[in-house]
């Protein structure tokens, strides 16, 4: 049988992989995919724990996770598309209009 810690380790791997995708890839679509991978890591944690405790709460948690992800992703994707439409880019590097003016003003 599978020890819980093994499932959790795989889940943690997925979570960190998703995080790495977000940190390393500079394109919005990749970042969204990274988010999905992170969420899947969480889902695996919840389901493995649900099996361990033998109650359905873990699965319920995962279902809500899917719902929330879907809702969030829908809006986020549209925003990405809007960025593409209006700003003609999906590169993170190009989305840096909002930032501190480091020239520094009068003291």
């Amino acid at each position: 049988m599978i020890p819980l810690s093994h499932s959790l380790t795989i889940a943690a791997l997925l979570f960190v992989l998703g995080l790495a995708i977000i940190l390393l890839r500079r394109e919005l679509l990749f970042i969204l995919m990274g988010l999905e991978v992170m969420f899947n890591g969480v889902a695996l944690t919840a389901i493995a724990a649900g099996q361990y405790w033998n109650n359905p709460d873990g699965q319920v948690l995962t279902i809500f996770l899917m719902v929330v992800t879907a809702a969030e992703l829908a809006v986020a994707l549209i925003l990405v598309w809007l960025a593409f439409e209006h700003l003609k880019t999906t590169q993170v590097d190009m989305l840096t209009r909002l930032k501190d003016d480091t020239k520094g003003g009068a003291p």
Binding site: M1, P3, L4, S5, N54
Partner: peptide
């Protein structure tokens, strides 16, 4: 200490 396993039972 949460490494203990039970048999997988489908929920």
């Amino acid at each position: 200490q949460i490494t203990a396993t039970n048999n997988i039972t489908a929920i």
